[in-house]
Simulated assay, not measured.
Amino acid sequence: MISAVFENEHFFIADKPSGVLTTPSRFAEEDGRRCLGKELQDQLGFQIYPVHRLDFEVSGLVVFAKNADSHRAANGWFEKKQVHKSYQALTTSQSFVHIPADVENNREAISLVPGQGYAWESRQLRGKRRAYESSQGKPCLTHAHFLGTNPAGFLQWDLEPVTGRPHQLRFDLSRHGFPIVGDILYGSSVECAPNTIALRSYRIDFQSCAQAAKFGLPSKIEVIAL
C-alpha cells in the first residue's frame, strides 16, 4: 500500500523510497525492479500521469496527476520553472581524485563556510549512463547551500535545481569535488545501502504556480530530510 503525503481529486504526491523506479524503464517487461508509478496506478485502479521523476537511487517527493487537466497544468508549471524543488545531500570532503586527469576540470578549492551559498552553472549532456560537461550541452543552474558537517562527518548540502537536467545535482556536486555518498557512478568511494545514494527530495514549493490553488494544492509540501 502506497501512502500519500498529499492527495486530492487532482494529484497524488508520494515519498518514493530509494531503489524504486518512478516510472517503468524502457525494458519494463524484463525489468524486475519495483516501479512506484505502476504500483500506484494498480492501487488506484485508473490511469495516472507522472509529472516529473526521481532517479532510481534517489528518495523523496514525486508528483503524479490523476487526470489530463491537472497533468497539463503541472507540466506547464515545471516547464516555466514555477515549481521549486529542494533536495538535501550528504557528501565527503572535497577531492578530485575521482576525476581522470584527461577530463577538463578547474579543480578549484572551495573554502566551505556553513550557510554559504553557491550558484553553479554549466552545460551538460547526458550520455548512456551519466551526465558530462560539454560546450554542446544544455545550460544548467544549481543553487547549492552548504549546511555544515553531520555527526558522521559527512558534509550536508541543501540544493535547488533551477533547471531540471538528468543527474544535474549528482554531476554538479561531483564536478566540484563533492561526490554524493553512495554515488559510485559519480566518484563516491563510500557505499550506502544497495541502490541508494544520499540524495533526497524533501520539499516542493507551489507558491509561484499559476492556479495551483484551483487544483487544491498547498503552498508547499515537505517531508523529513536526510
Rank of each mutant, 00 (worst) to 15 (best):
R123S: 10
Y118D: 12
D102V: 12
I110K: 14
P100N: 07
S111Y: 05
A119K: 15
A101G: 06
P100I: 06
S122M: 14
V113E: 09
E104D: 07
R126I: 04
V103K: 14
I99Q: 06
G115N: 02
V97D: 10
H98Q: 01
R123Q: 11
E104F: 03
E108R: 12
V97H: 12
W120H: 08
E121A: 14
R123G: 01
Y118H: 15
V97P: 00
A101D: 15
R126T: 11
L112W: 01
R126A: 06
I99R: 05
A109M: 02
V103M: 08
I110N: 11
S122N: 15
V113I: 03
V113P: 01
D102N: 13
Q116G: 00
P114V: 10
P114Q: 05
L112E: 02
E108C: 07
E121L: 12
S111W: 04
P100A: 07
Q116H: 01
V103D: 07
H98N: 01
P114S: 02
R107E: 11
R107H: 14
P100D: 04
Q124S: 12
S122Q: 04
W120K: 06
P114R: 09
R123C: 14
I110S: 10
W120F: 13
W120E: 12
Q124G: 03
W120V: 08
R107Q: 09
P114I: 06
N105A: 09
L112R: 00
V113D: 04
E121W: 07
S111P: 01
W120A: 08
A109F: 01
V113H: 10
R126M: 10
P114Y: 05
L125E: 09
H98M: 02
N105I: 12
Y118N: 13
A101R: 07
N106D: 08
E121G: 09
P100Y: 14
Y118G: 09
V97G: 04
P100Q: 04
I99F: 10
Y118V: 09
I99H: 05
G115P: 00
G115Q: 01
